[in-house]
Design a protein around this nucleic acid. Structure first.
Length: 529
DNA sequence: CTGACTGTTGCAGCG
DNA sequence: TCGCTGCAACAGTCA
């Protein structure tokens, strides 16, 4: 049994799976007595979060890396199993805990959980110290600085954070944990009950896993940060413009730091300041398209999500356009299982399932296809699939981007529709990306690789892949359906305006007579009261 | 209140 | 190959 001599501290890892730039961990280190770094395998994430095998593996690797790094410092990671509100009070007693530290998490589940834990800690006489380090700023400071409500456009968000000045600089982690080596009992360090879980314990079968392209963990994350933000790439960093990076290159055209930022293996603040070091030495691109701009997008969605009820749903979400999406399980299944019959869409969905990461613009293409572009299914359906399959699935960003792409919030130019044929062609005219991820189509000539159903039967036979037999026919006709869907969206938008008008919240109609036709003047007329 | 302007990343057709 | 226009036309911001 563990014989704790004096008082002790727990640093509770949740996100923020890193040692560097971890102010809450530093705070725990500064307390007298022992420090036990803790992670809790919360059954909530098994039961309610849609976590696919690739993300479980990423988490497992991240925990293993933390344990390795902590052991090198004379400590270890303690992984407990169960509900935090049960586990922590037990550990408070068992380890004579006086201090509990953790990183602030602004997601709804985390807020509720942490409020409960703070109350339990108070009962147990444990002092809680929580620190902000997942985001560049405190989301509440941003909201305060914008008159108490979240900015709803990127431009206004930028203005608000400009007022706040620079985010805090990153803090280093000491190479050894001095109190730990002196005070921790050997039994603790070798207590197998708190070992890092194996994949089987997380319900992951080795057979379900493909090659690991992006291993989890702080060590790998910082290696990646170093690689992409090295001197040798300074020119690339300064010239970076997100929309100019191809979504269908065979190797990622962007940094793929998103999974590491999601889990906090890499600190957004450290990344921010390392970018500043590079940018100050020369002319460079600007937000929103620059790399700093990408960090600000992340921050933007965190802020809006923290200020919006039911941010991950359509109903009850005041930001979200209310749209009568179709309910079609067959379409949804075809999309998520890469059977739409559009090679570019299917290739993206295969890469997503196999590797856990796809380029941002590839996400645009498949998200538009699922929602306003082609299938007219709810963005919440797509959100659920992405939540399962993406290594970087992040609650605020996932919901925010799905609303963006489905023209439900933030973005409203629903008449700009991605073509499942033309979009990929721009950056990969010969279809190498499709050949890699949909090998059945590998032998198609480039003239037909994006539209194999248009190939003459002789060509299909020569390629060894008959459309309708070996590879599906397109489930919808994009050329016709996308126009129908634009019309449906237009109707849904004006419906929304009318109901807002009825409840007396919105401004009256703009746009007088001039050249507006049919529906527009009708809408105006009705609204004019 | 109005109108001009802007908005990370549309497409097809044209010169 | 690139950059422009027309397509039809949205919300939010600002002067």
């Amino acid at each position: 049994m563990t014989q704790s001599t004096g008082s002790s501290a727990i640093h509770w890892f949740r996100k923020g799976l890193r040692l560097h730039d971890n102010p809450a961990l530093l705070s725990a280190l500064a307390q007298p007595g022992e420090l036990r770094p803790l992670f809790i395998l919360d059954p909530h994430f098994v039961a309610h979060a849609h976590v696919g095998v690739n993300r479980w593996r990423f988490l497992q690797q991240s925990l293993q890396d933390l344990d390795d790094q902590l052991r090198a410092r004379g400590s270890r990671l303690f992984v407990a199993r169960g509900q935090p509100e049960t586990i922590l009070p037990e550990l408070f007693k068992q380890w004579r805990v006086q201090w509990l530290t953790f990183e602030v998490d602004t997601e709804p589940y985390a807020l509720k959980r942490d409020a409960q834990i703070e109350a339990l800690a108070q009962e147990a006489g444990v002092v809680v110290d929580s620190r902000i380090s997942h985001t560049l700023y405190s989301v509440h400071r941003v909201i305060q600085a914008n008159h108490g409500k979240a900015p709803l456009t990127y431009v206004s968000f930028q203005k608000v954070v400009a007022k706040l000045g620079d985010p805090p600089t990153a803090v280093a982690c000491p190479p050894t944990f001095p109190t730990q080596s002196q005070l921790s009992s050997p039994a603790d360090l070798s207590d197998v009950r708190y070992n890092v879980p194996e994949l089987e314990e997380l319900g992951v079968k080795a057979a379900e896993l493909r090659t690991c392209r992006f291993p989890g963990g702080e060590t790998e994350g910082r290696r990646r940060l170093q690689e992409y933000l090295s001197d040798k790439r300074a020119g690339w960093v300064r010239a970076f413009e997100k929309p100019q990076t191809p979504p269908n290159s065979l190797e990622p055209s962007t940094t793929v730091l998103s999974p590491y930022l999601k889990f906090g293996c890499v600190s957004s603040r450290e990344m921010y300041w390392r970018l500043q070091d590079i940018l100050k030495k020369g002319k460079h691109s600007q937000p929103p398209v620059s790399l700093v701009g990408q960090l600000l997008w992340r921050e933007f969605y965190y802020v809006v999500a923290a200020d919006t009820p039911h941010f991950d749903r359509m109903k009850g979400n005041p930001l979200c356009k209310q749209i009568p999406w179709d309910d079609n399980p067959e379409y949804l299944k075809a999309w998520s299982e890469a059977r739409t019959g559009y090679p570019w869409i299917d290739a993206v969905m295969i890469q997503l399932r196999d590797e856990g990461w796809i380029h941002h613009l590839a996400r645009h293409a498949v998200a538009c296809f699922l929602t306003r572009g082609d299938l007219y299914l709810s963005w919440e359906d797509g959100q659920r699939v992405f939540e399962e399959l993406l290594l970087d699935a992040d609650w605020a960003l996932n919901a925010g981007n799905w609303m963006w792409l489905s023209a439900s919030a933030f973005f409203h130019q629903y008449f700009r529709v991605y073509s499942p044929v033309a979009f990929g062609k721009k950056t990969d005219p010969t279809g190498e990306y499709i050949r890699k991820y949909v090998p059945k189509l590998k032998k198609y000539p480039k003239e037909y690789i994006y539209e194999p159903w248009k190939a003459p039967l002789s060509v299909q036979k020569a390629a060894g892949c008959i459309i309708g037999t070996d590879y599906p026919k397109p489930i919808v006709n994009h050329d016709t359906i996308h126009k129908v869907n634009i019309g449906r969206h237009k109707a849904a938008y004006s419906q929304g305006k009318d109901s807002n008008q009825a409840s007396g919240t919105t401004k009256p109609a703009k746009r007088p007579e001039t050249g507006s036709k049919g529906q527009t003047s009708m809408t105006k007329f009705m609204k004019k009261k």
